[in-house]
């Protein structure tokens, strides 16, 4: 069978589908001071998984606000800088009007994912941290 670390090199998704892969990628991103990119990506996935119903309405609103505040509000943050202005104002509108939709972070997540696929992920595969691991 293919060792996990070789599968990590196939695609970003195969890396993010493995706990050890995530940990190593996160260590690398932390060194580059951009671990927020990965945390935001997972936060978006986790948010989408929360089903809208009466019992968790308050939690979803609180969480949407927390994600917005931590990653999007500060225009100098690593995540915020990679998200298009239109996408940011869409999310801001959703939060302000309390229109909390499971898909409200999807576009932002796609933009961050594309950035990782084109930039941090290929750099990671050439990094000492990955090569030493293999």
């Amino acid at each position: 069978p293919t060792p996990p670390y070789l599968r990590w090199a196939e695609s970003l998704h195969s890396l993010l589908d493995d706990q050890d892969g995530i940990n190593l990628f996160r260590t690398f991103l932390k060194q580059e001071e951009c671990a927020d990119l990965l945390d935001f990506w997972f936060a978006c996935s986790g948010f989408r998984k929360l089903e809208p119903n009466e019992s968790n309405e308050e939690k979803r609103l609180k969480l949407a606000k927390a994600i917005y505040k931590k990653y999007i509000l500060d225009n100098n943050g690593i995540v915020s800088r990679q998200i298009k202005p239109a996408t940011k104002s869409f999310i801001k509108d959703c939060v302000m009007k309390q229109q909390i939709d499971p898909a409200m972070f999807d576009q932002a997540q796609t933009e961050i994912q594309r950035m990782m696929e084109e930039n941090t992920y290929p750099v990671f595969l050439k990094s000492d941290i990955y090569l030493e691991y293999t």
């Binding site: 993010l16 945390d39 997972f42 936060a43 986790g46 948010f47 998984k49 609180k62 927390a66």
Partner: peptide
């Protein structure tokens, strides 16, 4: 009551794959 950070951390963890 969960603090915002706890809520966020719980959300991030919930999206990660479980250990195989």
């Amino acid at each position: 009551i969960d603090s915002e950070d706890d809520l966020l951390q719980e959300c991030i963890t919930s999206a990660m794959p479980k250990k195989k």
